[in-house]
Write a protein that binds this DNA or RNA. Structure first.
Lengths: 283, 283
DNA sequence: CGCTGTGATACTCGGGCGGTATCACAGCGA
DNA sequence: TCGCTGTGATACCGCCCGAGTATCACAGCG
């Protein structure tokens, strides 16, 4: 008997995240007592203490930490199974693939890819799913997407298969009227601490890094703030395609190069996916 | 409601593998009727047909194929969660890591690694788990192991993180009395079709490739058959350490190089694992 | 036309999951 | 010191769902 029901995992993960039985129960839509019992039962079945309950609060044991990590992965795998199965069934005769793309990025590459792939015989239907800045990995893991375009070093490719598509330098994007916009080239050091142009901050997994710059969560927001002269940012060169008149792009001499990959779950074996990857790697 | 219980996945996978409700039910230790109902219910909940039942047999639909694949991955993830949690709890104060190793391979590398790691301050206890020839990936996936040593191109690193440890050439291992054993070097073409020394065949995922050679499933068996002059095989150079007097190793001029990696599940974040990997990559 | 083997259906039963009410206990302020 | 509050655990109960048995419906086959 070395398995768990996903219900038990959902319950445990909720408690482990909230560190509070009452709130966890509310989040799960059940009452607190059954939740307490379910966790006790799980601990008995595993033969391991998962939670440290001293009055005034709950904390995770070492084993609990592991189960939180592994349980999340297992829950993602289960919901991925459901989503991908539904997709395969609904699709009708033609296959369908969901491609997760950082919203607003990859314009030209994406256009070329979609055009080239659509021309292939027996091509599947591609649904483009715009995602937040760093969420493509989660989308692949829980089945919202089948394949993604990702930028390293921003995204981690850990746990996926991938093929490299292109590499490009990075540019600083700043207000056209700002003095720095006149420069032919800049270094990271030069833009790190400009008092009137603090770097914009993106959320990573829903948490913003610390810093003085404004918090932005999509590209339009960012474009506007730059146009208003309030902030600046660093982007791959291909971002030039969406710049406004009020924007200027200045090459960075020492920023790390950004590589674009096409990425998919390693166990995936569909014909449609293989075709898309083949097309992409020929671009 | 986009999730499934692992029970449902177990049931479906059993049916999908057996393609027969009766046998699947027997394998699951339940009666056939509840199994039929469970599958129907699952199909209703997913809103998708998974099985094609025409009298005289069952076959998978496209969606069923996907669910088989994804379901297996999810089940592996769930049992991995249980195994690793139990391990973390049983361990007591000291961490424990299970290292999967191809039985009989990696002798020197493994010794060096274990010695070096044991010398580290705060080192975890390492349990070495001998595995079959190509099963390390499964062991990592379902939690029987936490980390593994693997040979490319024999194993696929798909879905894992890894660090390269060493690269070596390959040698043909044959009976010392055989004429070919006198040669200083051989090519793959020369050993492919030696009538009296057909290449031994290893099972890959429990299925043997076709061919004239004997089927072997462990190294001792193989060593014996070679010593008896019945077969030959191709191995990384480091295999020389376990050769018998009756064996001869002849370098291969054109065999692909073999690289040894240390490999672990991408989501794993334990301190003990990080230490082991650091030690390994410094060797 | 029975016989065999398949999966589906009908019905019953029991365990488990979830609900409500309550307890036990620690912290805390009047 | 004594409630009061907030925590998780316990007691008890009802009901649904999962599992079992018996049976059906149907296709292939001698």
């Amino acid at each position: 008997m070395d398995t768990v029901e996903t219900r038990e995992l959902r319950y445990f993960v909720a408690v482990a995240e909230e560190l509070h039985f009452g709130r966890a129960a509310e989040r799960l839509g059940i009452a607190q007592p059954p939740l307490s019992r379910a966790i006790q039962q799980l601990e008995r079945r595993l033969g391991v203490a998962l939670l440290e309950r001293d009055r005034r609060g709950v904390s995770l044991t070492g084993a609990g930490e592991i189960l939180l990590q592994e349980g999340r992965a297992a829950l993602d795998a289960a919901t991925a199974a459901v989503r991908r199965t539904r997709r395969a069934g609904d699709a009708g005769p033609r296959d369908r693939l969901v491609l997760a793309v950082k919203a607003g990025a990859f314009h030209e590459l994406l256009n070329k890819l979609l055009d080239a792939y659509a021309a292939e015989p027996g091509a599947a239907e591609i649904e483009v799913l715009p995602s937040g800045m760093c969420e493509q990995d989660g989308m692949l893991r829980d089945g919202r997407a089948d394949v993604a375009l990702m930028h390293t070093p921003f995204n981690s490719l850990a746990g996926f298969d991938s093929v490299e598509l292109m590499t490009e330098g990075q540019v600083a994007i700043l207000p056209a009227r700002h003095p720095l916009a006149e420069r032919k080239v800049l270094s990271l050091a030069e833009i790190a601490d400009v008092p009137d142009l603090p770097l914009a901050r993106w959320p990573r997994h829903d948490v913003y890094p610390p810093g003085p710059g404004p918090e932005v969560h999509d590209q339009t927001q960012l474009a506007q703030l730059i146009a208003l002269g309030r902030t600046m940012t660093v982007f791959p060169e291909s971002a030039r395609t969406w710049l406004w008149d009020e924007h200027a792009a200045v090459p960075l001499s020492d920023a790390p190069a950004v590589t674009t990959h096409i990425v998919w779950p390693a166990h995936s074996r569909s014909r449609a996916l293989a075709g898309l990857v083949r097309t992409a790697s020929r671009l």
